[in-house]
């Protein structure tokens, strides 16, 4: 069971993931970066795990909101042209 199913799956994981990544629109690759930046910002401003979690959510909302607004403006300008 293990050898017949899991090993080929592990061996082909990079190909499968590469194929999956190729289907994801480029803009979605920015979301993990927003989450990462929020988490690091929060963790470098706080010491308590609960405070870090809360601040990370706040930073995500702020960063995501700001970047979303910029994206909306860019899309709007592109649509107007």
């Amino acid at each position: 069971m293990f050898e017949t199913t899991l090993i080929p799956l592990v061996a082909e994981a990079p190909l499968l993931l590469g194929s999956l990544a190729g289907r994801v629109p480029g803009i979605f690759f920015g979301l993990p970066l927003v989450a990462l930046a929020s988490l690091i910002f929060a963790a470098t401003h706080h010491e308590d795990p609960a405070a870090i979690r809360l601040a990370a959510v706040h930073w995500t909302v702020w960063l995501g909101g700001m970047l979303g607004m910029v994206l909306a403006i860019v899309l709007l300008l592109g649509w107007l042209q």
Partner: peptide, 29 residues
């Protein structure tokens, strides 16, 4: 993916500057 991969690795390095500062001087807040 060349640009996206570059962005991920660059951002990881730049965010580590904050981590280095945190180790040097404590929390920014």
């Amino acid at each position: 993916f060349f640009e996206i991969g570059s962005l991920y690795t660059m951002l990881a390095g730049m965010l580590n500057l904050l981590v280095i500062y945190d180790a040097w001087a404590g929390p920014l807040g």
